[in-house]
């Protein structure tokens, strides 16, 4: 009996194996997801929903998948700020973040933005202390979700006869057990 029970417990464990890791703990970012930045961009700020731990990090990739080195990632409470030695060139970028919440849960996600500066303008002197307002969002798309629902989700649907059959089987079990139990002598 006990072995069977443990088997059951084990099957129950298996029922929860569902390995999906894509969360958004990101509250807001500067530049925001989908933003087109028309000024020079030298600093990126990510604000999260709760306190994040020190090893949290993020990286920036351009369209070719090359990552642009981010220096001085600083973390205070729920904010993560990183800057670049040179302003980002025109193009599309993807920011991938990996954070650790205070309860030790790793959360990751990404957002993308593009830089589109007027070409004639010469970039200003590289400042020692990057200003926060460098990045102005001209266009604001949907603020949060990175993955947009484009593709049709294929659902592992059960055939339509399954549910009625389950109910049928359950009814049989109920009736059978009632008869079995009632027939037992006290």
């Amino acid at each position: 009996m006990i072995k069977k029970l443990f088997l059951f417990t084990f099957i129950f464990f298996l029922a929860f194996v569902n390995n999906a890791l894509a969360h958004t703990g990101l509250e807001s970012s500067s530049p925001q997801n989908g933003a087109i930045v028309k000024e020079e961009l030298q600093e990126i700020t990510l604000t999260f929903e709760s306190k994040i731990e020190q090893n949290s990090t993020f990286e920036i990739q351009n369209l070719n998948g090359d990552s642009i080195p981010v220096k001085n990632i600083s973390i205070t409470e729920n904010k993560m700020v990183g800057s670049f030695s040179n302003p980002l060139e025109n193009g599309k970028y993807q920011a991938k973040w990996k954070i650790i919440g205070a309860d030790g849960h790793p959360i990751d996600g990404d957002f993308s933005f593009s830089v589109d500066m007027p070409v004639t303008e010469t970039p200003a002197e590289v400042q020692k202390e990057p200003k926060k307002e460098d990045a102005k969002q001209v266009e604001e798309n949907k603020p949060k979700t990175a993955n947009e629902p484009k593709e049709k989700i294929e659902q592992n649907k059960l055939p339509s006869y399954i549910i009625p059959s389950i109910i049928g089987v359950l009814i049989v079990i109920v009736v059978g057990s009632f008869i079995w139990v009632m027939r037992r002598k006290k």
Binding site: N18, A20, A22, H23, I107, P149, I153, N156, L158
Partner: peptide
């Protein structure tokens, strides 16, 4: 509250039994 319901995070058990068509969010 840390999770947006997308097709990647949705529970497989849920989509198996849910009668309608699952849409993100």
């Amino acid at each position: 509250h840390e999770t947006t319901v997308t097709s990647e995070v949705v529970s497989k058990l849920f989509t198996m039994f849910y009668q309608g068509q699952f849409q993100p969010e």
